[in-house]
């Protein structure tokens, strides 16, 4: 076991020396790997941020029941009684038209009502359900629409669902891109290692003459591919973080203009480790073929 570790240590040092002997070539290969990895990695980080934003904005899916403009207290109470009889209901609250106007003004969008003398907003009930089953939402929406004095029923979760579907699509596309670029990286490593083998031809032949096994000869090349992958992974990580830092301020400015709080976040340590690990594994795989 100790000897096996020693042989790996020697192979590791040899691979490091070979990488160091051609700093320009090593840097170029690592850059190719880094850029190719940064694309899907950056895409995933972006999707994570958009997902988090969607979660933060939407909260739990809600149904908004907007009442007619001329409803009185008794009619509002009638709707409340109807709501109390709805099964699967988690909670509901009444938002008066005055309260709605106040909320609109607080959000900074009060200017849009600037030219209108009277409050145009309706009284409303905001309903949350115990379930997030889309079909149940649709059934309840259809039922509530037919209640007396109800002008309009809106599923607030609809756009979140559409966004989630889009994100899922984007994730699938990103996965396809990752597989494609991963395959390209394996080929890049394979080609680099093939050139290395040509460079080290004499050493390989001498080692064979002296009784080296295939495993002994391949070991430094595996380390070479793996280390190149690690370098590529670190470059990709740097590119992703660099991109996030570059986007942080412009995104914050856009978000502020819309009255939303957005804070971009980069990959955490687990994701960073996974990125470097995957890069090393791709480098190793490129050597194995």
């Amino acid at each position: 076991m100790l000897n096996w570790l020693y042989l790996h240590f020697r192979a590791f040092v040899l691979a490091l020396k070979r990488l160091g002997k051609q700093p320009f070539g090593t840097l170029l290969s690592a850059l190719v790997m880094g850029i190719a990895l940064a694309l899907p990695a950056g895409g995933y980080v972006l999707l994570d941020n958009v997902s988090a934003l969607a979660r933060g904005v939407s909260g739990a899916p809600e149904i908004s029941i907007f009442l007619n403009n001329d409803v009185d207290f008794a009619q509002i109470e009638a709707v409340r009684r109807n709501l109390e009889n709805v099964p699967h209901l988690a909670d509901f609250r009444f938002v008066s038209r005055d309260e709605a106007l106040k909320q609109l003004e607080e959000s900074g969008l009060g200017d849009v009502l600037g030219g209108i003398p009277a409050n145009p907003l309706p009284d409303a009930f905001i309903v949350t359900l115990q379930s997030d089953d889309p079909e149940l939402f649709e059934v309840l929406k259809a039922e509530m629409k037919d209640w007396p004095d109800v002008a309009h029923v809106q599923l607030d979760s609809a756009w979140v669902k559409r966004l989630a579907a889009l994100l899922e699509l984007a994730r699938t596309m990103m996965l396809a891109l990752s597989v494609l670029l991963g395959f390209a990286l394996v080929i890049v490593t394979f080609n680099t290692v093939r050139l290395q083998i040509l460079t080290q031809k004499n050493e390989i032949e001498v080692s064979r003459l002296l009784g080296a096994t295939d495993r002994f000869i391949r070991r430094p090349f595996y380390w070479f591919g793996g280390l190149q992958g690690v370098l590529g992974g670190l470059i990709a990580l740097g590119a992703v973080w660099g991109g996030i830092e570059a986007l942080r301020e412009p995104v914050a400015k856009v978000a502020e203009a819309y009255g939303v709080m957005i804070s971009l976040s980069g990959p955490d340590w687990r994701e960073s480790l996974a990125l470097v690990g995957i890069a090393a594994a791709l480098g190793w795989l490129g050597t194995a073929i």
């Binding site: 100790l2 020693y6 002296l210």
Partner: peptide, 30 residues
């Protein structure tokens, strides 16, 4: 042990590293 007309030494390694190679291949402790 094999000695050929061409020495087949590794010119990018020191003399001791050249001689060490068969021992490493054979798994001798450092």
């Amino acid at each position: 042990g094999v000695v050929l007309q061409e020495t087949r030494l590794l010119f990018d390694r020191s003399i001791s590293d050249n001689i060490l190679l068969p021992l490493v291949i054979n798994g001798h402790p450092p």
